[in-house]
């Protein structure tokens, strides 16, 4: 479904991604982790071309992301993305947030867009908030709306860029629960996250990055129980021991 081949990216002279390779199959849940500044958010943003890369190839559902001839808006409309800071549109109500891209990008009618949106809002447990504006919701609620908004486009895969990092601790689980449910239903997911509990329970695979390199790419069990690399061991010892 998502294939990353020998991807390199520089910001000026600074190399952020070095020879990154990874394959994500349909229905797989892959957690990308690593210390801050390791390039994991950059990598996930390369997958839907929010960040350009200079060399290598990323293929999503048979379409090359870096190809200048690719219809990027169309490709992006098929990949859901959830951001660290939610990025709901503050000038629109929750319902309008859910409807806008369905109508303008997919060309759905207002009725159809509203039905789909409200159904998904119900699914993330927020049907009562439909008429409110994003600013009136808690962070956890906003992130659940953001997930519903992405799902309303019927994506073939979902990208999560640190979806719980900006949340107060008591709100982390409500978002992780929605993500866990989504994973169980067979959604293809690529998640940048520090939630190792989620990774252990839900992920099929873990990709560990450090300084722009993919250091480990193995099953979740293997990663947590017997990480091969020194850096992964060091990272795990720091993140798990408190």
């Amino acid at each position: 479904m998502i294939s990353i081949e020998q991807v390199n990216k520089w910001y000026g002279d600074f190399q952020v991604l070095t020879d990154c390779n990874a394959q994500i199959s349909k229905g797989e849940v892959v957690v990308v982790c690593g210390p801050s500044g390791s390039g994991k958010s950059t990598l996930i943003k390369c997958v839907n071309a929010l960040e350009p890369f200079q060399s290598g190839k990323i293929i999503v559902d048979g379409i090359s992301v870096g190809d200048p001839a690719t219809d990027l808006p169309k490709l992006r409309s098929r990949i859901g993305m959830v951001f660290q800071n939610f990025e709901l549109f503050p000038h629109l109500s929750i319902t309008e947030n859910l409807m806008l891209a369905q109508q303008r990008v997919l060309g759905r009618s207002a009725d159809e867009a509203r039905d789909t949106g409200l159904k998904l809002l119900d699914r993330v447990g927020l049907k009562a908030q439909a008429a409110k504006h994003p600013g009136q919701l808690s962070g956890g609620q906003q992130q659940r709306v953001a997930i519903a908004r992405a799902l309303a486009m019927n994506p073939i895969a979902m990208l999560f860029d640190e979806p719980t990092s900006a949340l107060d601790p008591e709100m982390v689980n409500e978002v992780l629960d929605v993500m866990t449910e989504l994973a169980k239903e067979g959604m293809t997911m690529m998640c940048v996250t520090h939630e190792m509990g989620f990774a252990r329970r839900v992920a099929n695979r873990v990709i560990f990055m450090d300084q722009g390199h993919i250091e480990e790419d193995c099953s979740a069990d293997e990663f947590f129980n017997s990480p091969r690399g020194e850096r992964a061991q060091h990272f795990l010892s720091k993140i798990l021991h408190h």
């Binding site: 808006p73 992006r76 800071n85 806008l100 891209a101 990008v105």
Partner: peptide
């Protein structure tokens, strides 16, 4: 981030500017 969110939903430049 707002522009990225608009792009991620499949909007083009004109839509992202005009709607968001």
């Amino acid at each position: 981030g707002q522009i990225n969110a608009a792009y991620a939903l499949g909007m083009n430049y004109r839509q992202a500017m005009q709607l968001i």
